[in-house]
Design a protein around this nucleic acid. Structure first.
Lengths: 110, 110
DNA sequence: CTATTTTATCGTAATATTGCAATATAAGAA
DNA sequence: TTCTTATATTGCAATATTACGATAAAATAG
């Protein structure tokens, strides 16, 4: 069906998987990594950095934005995109706790 | 087209996005969280824990396994699934570094 | 051997994603 | 105003994902 029954899961799981899904494409990982490395965040040249056509990049940017991973500010003619610190912090915290809990476990058969 | 041109990205970005994509579905987040909380990892009852039919769960498990997020060991009639510590460690490390780098940045317009 | 149990695979329908050409929109420059 | 530049939206084709019923496969129990 291609349709996820969202009402079957915890809000926390839906929120998390939505952010991870947004990062689940190499182009979108590349966008985040480029935004990180760019000095200022006037980012009119994201398109030139990626091996994709402009509409495709625009679409990926929208997905990252919808998931809350990045933010966009209008700066005259261009648009300034940058990473949403809070979202990355939340992901970092999730994996930090997950890792800690895994390492606490004694029974691990695999 | 629905087809990602993988040769256009860095191996690191492909590897990472593949793992994140695997976790980009609430059912698969739920599976990982259940594996974490289960005492031993003889996990024949994952199906009962999820609001999905058995073939669907089996499919999700395979995707997690293919991405390296979980491992599966045959235990007689049942199969023992558990989290692949190394994969979660790698994700944790990625977000740890990403977070650190973001907080180091002074120029953040959004 | 024949159940039974557990998990995987097949087949299929519904929907989502990816990518791009064409076009639209928005804002400043001339 | 018209031109240019930057980004978004539309429309579409190719492919992928999600979900499940039916069935297969693999191991043990009787």
């Amino acid at each position: 069906m291609g349709v996820t029954k969202t009402e079957r899961y915890k809000p926390q799981q839906l929120e998390l998987s939505s952010m991870l899904k947004a990062l689940g494409h190499p182009a979108r990982v590349a966008i985040v990594e480029y935004l990180l490395k760019a000095d200022d965040c006037i980012c009119g040249d994201i398109v030139n950095e990626l091996p994709l056509a402009q509409p495709t990049v625009s679409q990926h940017l929208r997905e990252l934005k919808t998931a809350g991973i990045i933010r966009g500010n209008i700066e005259g003619t261009a648009i300034c995109y940058c990473i949403n610190k809070d979202a990355i912090d939340a992901l970092n915290e999730y994996f930090r706790v997950l890792t800690a809990q895994i390492h606490k476990k004694t029974t691990n058969c695999c």
